[in-house]
């Protein structure tokens, strides 16, 4: 928790200014200003439909694939303008990994799932390199010991919690700078959830993590910063401790104490 409390000292990793998102001309986000700092976990909370996923998908331009979706505003990752028409989306997504709500391993072997990203980005020279990356990623995702004997088995044969850790391993195999997680534990049982929460804590050392969650406890446990979204606006953003102990905004207080949402 070394950087707690000195928000101003480090420069933000992700800087969102006035991000507006429209689906079929209907606004889902009304201009989001948000600075996300490196090597921290930032939790986004808020009632259903308030635009948390939409915002998350702006960061790696996953909204591009939705036909009726239009994004405007400015979003910087370090010095890169994410919505610069010149930018290479493939490269951007190599820098920004994503883990989804439902585990979505490819119908391939465990090994090939993890190797998929490095392969399409041409990160390795030979098989040994690839083996090393796969092993390292699975280790970081805390899955190595469980699957080392059966790397060639189908990934869909793993349990839900293992599948989700595999998806995390798959995302970190391309060595991204940022990891986006959209309710990564909502399909998992408490034990698998706590394994993943521990994992998030460790991954923070290397990655900047943005996590959407519906669980207040989870946000409090894993994150350093918390942002509260409501109806497409960011209502309050700050240190997780502050948000949960002394929220400045009434709506935030109502939400975290369980009165809305």
């Amino acid at each position: 928790m070394k950087r707690d409390g000195d928000m101003t000292l480090s420069t933000p990793k992700i800087k969102s200014s006035g991000i507006i998102v429209e689906y079929d001309g209907k606004r889902a986000l009304h201009g989001i200003d948000l600075d996300i700092y490196p090597n921290e976990v930032t939790a986004l909370i808020g009632p259903s439909g308030c635009g948390k996923s939409t915002f998350l998908r702006c960061i790696n331009r996953m909204n591009d694939v939705i036909d009726n979706c239009k994004v405007s505003g400015r979003l910087m990752i370090d010095d890169t303008d994410v919505y610069d028409p010149e930018i290479d989306v493939v490269e951007l997504r190599a820098r920004v990994g994503m883990v989804f709500q439902k585990p979505n391993p490819f119908p391939k072997s465990i090994y090939d799932n993890v190797a998929y990203g490095p392969r399409i980005h041409g990160l390795t020279e030979n098989k040994d390199d690839m083996d090393r990356i796969v092993k390292k990623s699975l280790k970081r995702a805390g899955l190595w010991d469980e699957v080392r004997e059966r790397l060639d088995d189908k990934a869909l044969g793993l349990s839900g919690g293992q599948q989700q850790r595999l998806c995390i391993a798959r995302a970190i195999a391309v060595n991204p700078e940022i990891l986006l997680m959209d309710e990564p534990c909502s399909a998992l049982d408490p034990i698998a959830t706590s394994i993943i929460e521990e994992l998030i804590n460790e991954l923070r050392e290397r990655f900047t993590i943005v996590i959407v969650t519906h669980s207040m406890q989870q946000a409090a446990r894993v994150s350093q910063k918390t942002g509260y979204f409501h109806l497409g606006n960011i209502i309050e953003y700050g240190e997780t401790n502050d948000i949960f102990t002394r929220p400045k905004n009434e709506q935030t207080e109502a939400y975290i104490s369980g009165r809305i949402g």
């Binding site: 996953m62 694939v65 490269e91 997504r93 990994g97 994503m98 989804f100 979505n104 490819f106 998929y116």
Partner: peptide, 10 residues
């Protein structure tokens, strides 16, 4: 979600 997974990997 398989499509999303692949495109999120670039």
């Amino acid at each position: 979600n398989l499509r999303d997974g692949a495109s999120a990997l670039g």
